[in-house]
């Protein structure tokens, strides 16, 4: 539903960007991570991604048909929601999990509030939060061993680091390649970074959100962690071990739910990183990226109000008064 906006009088510069074009760029950026998940977790990954996307697109079309709105599946945003939700799921979940999650994301989190542009939280993350609250056993235990595709319920690196699970940590090379337990799309750091850099280079996303997010996580872990405790004080591990990279580049940067100003975006990233840090430090869940971003989504309108850019030519009250007094 692309509404017509009435802005100021002409002349206007019309950019070549369209919603569909931007969404296409995001999909291109997600391809390396999707391929990585296929290599790491096998056909199960493909099935989950397909189920999730199909459900997202079908939910959007059916809901819009039902309420007699223009069907907007052509803008590809539902496809992205589907892919992103699939990326956050453990690779061995039953297939009805992505189907229900995507339907919830599209209908409850997005369409009920008015469709693309009107949703107040990132739909994919809202879907994940719902699934995590509804079926916690599936969402925290249905892991697959990478490359061998064995079903396991042992602790992810994140839980090991937090001290709530037993297990051995993979080496840094395995972390980068994604050869570790974890959600479909969060493990393959290099593939995600490739997509993230593509998006920044194309001007689709602002580097400030991931920078603020990952920077806060890195510095915070260095400051609060210590050997033998929180993440061993290892900032690099804090970024690599969970879903921080996926969240920072692909979810926190959602246009609809992140601030529009440059400074606001930096604050959004820092805030999401800080909440993630708090949850990892003291929270009940091993991972806090989902809630970090969702909570910052909620305060995005506030951030935008706080950082309204100053008009060119505006002077401080005091300076203006002095100038006025001097002039007299």
């Amino acid at each position: 539903m692309e509404e017509k906006l009435v802005i100021s009088s002409s002349p206007h510069i019309k950019g070549p960007k369209t919603v569909r074009g931007i969404m296409l760029d995001v999909i291109i950026a997600l391809i390396p991570a999707c391929l990585a998940s296929l290599i790491l977790f096998g056909w199960k990954a493909l099935l989950i991604i397909m189920a999730s996307v199909a459900s997202a697109v079908a939910s959007e079309a059916l809901y819009e048909k039902a309420v007699k709105r223009e069907v907007t599946v052509g803008d590809l945003s539902a496809v992205i929601t589907g892919i992103l939700l699939a990326m956050t799921l453990p690779p061995n979940v039953p297939l009805w999990i992505p189907v229900i999650g995507s339907a919830f994301a599209i209908v409850i989190a997005k369409q009920i509030f008015g469709g693309l542009g009107c949703n107040f939280v990132n739909p994919a993350l809202a879907g994940r939060a719902f699934l995590l609250a509804a079926w916690p056993m599936h969402m925290t235990r249905d892991w697959l061993n990478p490359l061998t595709y064995d079903a396991v319920t042992s602790a992810t690196p994140l839980a090991v680091l937090k001290g709530t699970g037993q297990g051995t940590l993979p080496g840094i090379k395995d972390f980068l390649l994604g050869v570790r337990l974890g959600s479909l799309g969060e493990t393959s750091v290099l593939a995600l970074l490739l997509g993230g850099i593509y998006l920044i280079a194309r001007g689709v996303i602002d580097y400030r959100i991931p920078l603020g997010f990952l920077g806060t996580l890195f510095v915070g872990t260095l400051v609060f962690g210590k050997p033998g405790a929180f993440f061993q004080g290892d900032g690099v591990l804090a970024i690599l071990a969970g879903g921080a990279i996926l969240g920072a580049f692909f979810m926190a940067t959602d246009y609809v739910t992140s601030p529009v100003t440059a400074r606001g975006r930096l604050y959004m990233g820092i805030g999401a990183g800080f909440i993630t840090l708090l949850i990892r430090l003291w929270g009940g869940y091993p991972e806090g990226v989902t809630y970090g971003i969702l909570l910052m989504n909620l305060v995005t309108p506030l951030i935008d109000r706080f950082v309204v850019p100053r008009y060119y030519g505006y002077a401080h009250d005091r300076a203006a008064k002095e100038a006025a007094a001097g002039g007299r």
Binding site: I108, I112, F130, A133, A134, W135, P136
Partner: peptide, 22 residues
């Protein structure tokens, strides 16, 4: 089906209430 624990928690209450109200 596998029951969704969330429906027994406060978020489930709000979601049900909101949808019925709508």
């Amino acid at each position: 089906f596998e029951p969704a624990a969330v429906m027994l928690t406060p978020p489930g209450g709000f979601i049900t209430l909101g949808l019925l109200m709508a």
